[in-house]
Design a binder for these strands. Structure first.
Lengths: 125, 125
DNA sequence: AATTTAATGCAACAAAGTTGCTTTAACAAA
DNA sequence: TTTGTTAAAGCAACTTTGTTGCATTAAATT
């Protein structure tokens, strides 16, 4: 994957965020006119493919992207993600890994475990 | 909720299906012209609200609906759903309930646990 | 049968994401 | 450093999924 201005800026945006971001949210953060809307979608696809970022489908169906925080050795995204219904923010709950057991005749390629509710910050206020 | 032709037909469609169905899939099953597209969306919203069906957001972001098979005593949908990437079918894996533990300062309202891969049927062929 | 209002139909809209095709710009090789 | 190759970007048009406002219809209550 070529090192382009769009890719660098998008990856930086995701890595500097402590929440998972959608294409729309990334576009809002990027300097106006840095790149086309479609380019963001295509860069995100490539970042996922090269395993530089995690892809999460939120409970409302919107796809979000997050940095691979604890993936230095291995690309893992088997942790839970939390969607706050108040502040509408999706965060990785990295230390909580759910356990489950499917029959062995299922081939598992991907997990997407979402918990939705109210986050600690919003419960406070 | 009033007992209308659309509601009865949509609920019957969901209950007779052994897979979770999207609005588009339900529309394709219903007799042509039985009701408007928008009506399906609105009936589905009401069925979810009155806890007659489960709502699942698939890993591709499309919302699907399934019958409450083992909810005779209590409305629970804490089980895993499986998305087959070959036949593109979503099924409830009712007997597999995942365990996880969030910090107590999270208020949990809803779960959406998806596993995606290849189902036993598609692995056979 | 009359009344109330939930439910439906229709058109228009909106958000999220995709596709085709041309142009631009990484970057490798000469 | 220039040239050639092709990945990546831009742009317009499109698709899918889902929503909203408002007028009309039809459950269900009296």
């Amino acid at each position: 994957m070529r090192k382009t201005i769009a890719k660098e800026a998008i990856l930086k945006t995701i890595n500097e965020s402590d929440t998972a971001l959608s294409q729309a949210e990334i576009q809002a953060i990027l300097p106006d006119g840095l790149c086309n809307r479609v380019t963001i979608y295509r860069v995100l696809d490539r970042l996922v493919e090269e395993k530089s970022v995690h892809q999460i489908t939120n409970i409302d169906g919107v796809v979000k992207y997050a940095n691979c925080h604890s993936c230095s050795t291995e690309h893992k995204h088997d942790h839970i993600h939390f969607n706050c219904e108040k502040c509408n923010v999706v965060t990785c709950v990295e230390d909580v890994e759910p356990t489950f057991k499917l029959p062995s005749n299922y081939q598992i390629n991907q997990l997407n475990f979402m918990v939705s509710g109210v986050c600690p910050d919003c419960l406070d206020s």
